[in-house]
């Protein structure tokens, strides 16, 4: 299995995992994505520095046992993330797994997630930089 480590395609891509849902935004093309449950777990693990065998191990520890092909699901998901240019190969292949990631425990089986893609914000997000006046200015006042 692929032991390459990946990292988020920063600064073009930003994401947050909130209540088991990952929302991922590609500022370069304006596309944004959401992925739930198993997918958010994998996304979080990849961004935390885990390679695929490590993610499989984390899944086996965190989810109920089932007959699904965990490797295939993770591989397919990774391919989608790469195709959408949300991830790049990590510069430091020795990046450790994110702390605490193995502590997750879900009372359900790992399942194939769906990466949902939305394209309606292209023009809006492409122009977002014009809002910027530097962090210093943003912190100095809340009014504009």
């Amino acid at each position: 299995m692929n032991e390459t480590r990946y990292e988020i395609n920063a600064p073009s891509v930003v994401s947050e995992v909130i209540d088991g849902e990952a929302v991922i935004v590609n500022m370069d093309n304006g596309n944004y994505y959401s992925i739930d449950d198993s997918g958010a777990f994998v996304w979080d693990a990849i961004c935390g520095g885990a390679n695929l065998p490590e993610i499989r191990g984390m899944v086996e520890k965190s989810y109920s046992k089932s007959d699904v092909d965990i490797d295939a699901i993770i591989r397919e998901l990774l391919e989608q993330f790469l195709k959408e240019e949300l991830l790049v190969e990590a510069g430091d292949q020795g990046t450790p797994i994110g702390e605490g990631m193995e502590a997750s425990s879900f009372d359900c089986a790992f399942s194939a997630p769906e990466l949902k893609k939305y394209t309606d914000m292209e023009e809006l997000l492409l122009l977002d930089p014009i809002h910027d006046e530097g962090e210093e200015a943003e912190e100095a006042q809340i009014a504009g």
């Binding site: 073009s12 929302v23 935004v25 500022m27 997000l125 930089p129």
Partner: peptide, 17 residues
């Protein structure tokens, strides 16, 4: 690029979510 302002980026993600 205006990128990398985590507070602002999170604000946008929050709005999209």
């Amino acid at each position: 690029t205006g990128r990398g302002n985590r507070t602002r980026d999170f604000g946008l993600i929050h709005v999209l979510r």
